[in-house]
Nucleic acid binder design. Structure first.
Lengths: 343, 343
DNA sequence: TGCGCCATCCAAAGCGGTTTGAGCGTGATT
DNA sequence: AATCACGCTCAAACCGCTTTGGATGGCGCA
């Protein structure tokens, strides 16, 4: 059933039927109702392909996922972000299109979205320092919202981000207050913007208390269980091991815990651990009393917010970029306690 | 730059240019090369919206993700599957479109794909027993491939699946060979098809050795860290606790490990654990010697295979359904050893 | 009575490709 | 020399919708 058929069935022109369905004012209310009823009865759905061609809009938002040839990996955080964003898209009649490409052709993927007209805007994931994709998107004139921020970017851009610096600063202060002075940082890859900010929060807090920055207590790697484990093993084996860890994710936190327990120590008593918790749906940080003390911020919620921002930008093309900084909450769990020999 | 412009620039008709670019035989080779060169020079990309309308094909594959209102969750396995499938799609010029919807409107999502013409086929995720989506897709005439199988389905369908029964049977036998006779099953939700098959593999192996099936050693829940932990805690607290666990996923395996270590036991020595490892990119099971002994099967690879199968079905509309059963390998890690009081 | 103004509806022209059905030279065939 | 087939190219229709720019007719008002 298409527009034309529906129109002839009703003895009306396609024009009128289209207008009736799309709520234009120049159609009689009685006619409109008749059309609506008929549309429902015949289960008419306008063909999206035709709408897209006619209106020149794709009614779709693109997400480019570079394929893990080297560092980056399809990470679990991405899945939750997508879920949040996707929810917003379908509520607004937009499609979400994912483009999984080898990372050397990421640029081309964005260009194609534009030149082939398959997306009205994109979300930029995992921004790095001086991210080259920002000037690229400016150049090709594609609306976008960054999930995170890009330190060093000179062009304006819209973003949604967690206050990573502040979160890690607070977490560090919390550990310091508990008497810990040797705190290991198990960070994500430090060419990623969020990791840079987290380190800053950590060092800022230490410096503010007059404590030295010890490079041997700072590691940076992918946020996997194994790399969390390795980093903790290394630090714990040092001459002057940390009594606490600040860890970039729940998953690497599990590796850290494994390293701690393997040494016969108990997390929360002998060694304190604070993780950053993205509040992933399949990786809940306990229930009643969380396993990990954590800085928590829902990445799914961030997805929702970023998607709303993008749709708004597509609809209104504002000349000022939009910005939204989300604060992480510090939630207390079982993994932290006073520094040994203090309490 | 569109077709018409390119055509006038070349002094040719749109027809000829279109044919030249699409490899039709009735165009002079010299002309074709001239056209190709010009297309590249002007960076011409055909507008997908127009192609889609003209050809009647969407050049896109849909994936419906029901939003976790109750049980189902956006699981990490999904992310890797998507990555594998997406890779195949973009290599073949297809788009991947994700539709995130409340689970009560999942049906409508499939219907919309069809009636609005936005997808040429879909992948069906997480099939359950007697899955109603299979008759639905048959009814609306949408090509599809199931990731997994649907016990109880009467209509034919194409699928890609891991031999879950066999994997868990082998794993159980392996534990039995090590002298374990009390083996706890920490399974996924048992209305999911894969979980049913895994349980069957487990019970089959026990029965074959004349061992009883003890319901108190079988649990079924979401595959999260916390639920793995809870299940293991419960079983270990029983009067006659298991000496080994068979666990549905890496994540729940971590919960099981936590429960074991919390009791002061050591995994691999006091208690053996075998997990199913989906070989997720951000959740690698160790390196040199894997942490967990595991039945392993790459879900990403499954994504690739399922996508290829679907594209083939879309292209050829075979009348026989296609089927592909992948075998999981049993890899030995550090988490298994002889039953206590044996070796 | 005549005029202008709404309210309502419609014909037709896009949107940017693909595809059908001809047309037009040219060289081979009869 | 007339015919034919073939190789190449093109004009135009079409995909299913939106949108522009009229038409038409009824009504109020002078």
């Amino acid at each position: 059933m298409n527009l034309k058929e529906l129109a002839t069935r009703l003895g009306l022109s396609p024009t009128t039927v289209s207008r009736a369905l799309n709520g234009y004012p120049e159609v009689n209310e009685a006619t409109r109702e008749r059309v609506m009823a008929a549309a429902k009865r015949h289960n008419y759905r306008p063909n999206t392909r035709a709408i897209r061609l006619a209106t020149g809009r794709a009614m779709a938002v693109g997400h480019v996922i570079p394929l893990a040839t080297r560092h980056e990996i399809v990470n679990p955080i991405f899945a939750d972000f997508i879920a949040g964003a996707g929810e917003t898209y379908s509520r607004n009649g937009y499609d979400m299109i994912l483009s999984v490409v080898p990372d050397e052709s990421e640029d081309q993927a964005y260009r194609d979205f534009k030149s082939r007209g398959s997306a009205d805007g994109v979300i930029l994931h995992a921004p790095r320092m001086d991210d080259p994709r920002i000037p690229l998107l400016h150049e090709i004139g594609m609306p976008f919202v960054v999930h995170g921020r890009a330190t060093g970017a000179t062009l304006p851009y819209s973003w949604v981000d967690v206050n990573n610096r502040r979160a890690f600063q607070r977490a560090t202060e919390f550990l310091l207050d508990l008497g810990h002075t040797r705190i290991g940082l198990v960070n994500g890859l430090e060419f990623m913007d969020f990791a840079i900010r987290r380190r800053k929060g950590y060092t800022d807090a230490l410096t503010a208390r007059g404590l030295p920055i010890d490079p041997s207590l700072m590691s940076s790697d992918e946020m996997t269980e194994v790399s969390g484990y390795r980093a903790a093993v290394t630090m714990l084996a040092g001459p002057n091991p940390p009594t606490a860890f600040l860890v970039a994710s729940m998953i690497s936190g599990m590796g850290v815990r494994r390293a701690i327990e393997e040494r016969g120590l108990k997390m929360g008593r002998d060694i304190s651990v604070i993780i950053h918790d993205d509040d992933l749906s399949y990786m809940k940080n306990g229930g009643d009393v969380p396993i990990f003390t954590a800085t928590r911020s829902s990445v799914r919620e961030a997805g929702r917010i970023a998607a709303e921002m993008l749709l708004d930008i597509i609809a209104t093309t504002p000349d000022q970029p939009r910005e939204r900084l989300l604060e992480a909450e510090l939630i207390i769990g079982q993994s932290t306690g006073p520094a040994p020999g203090r309490a």
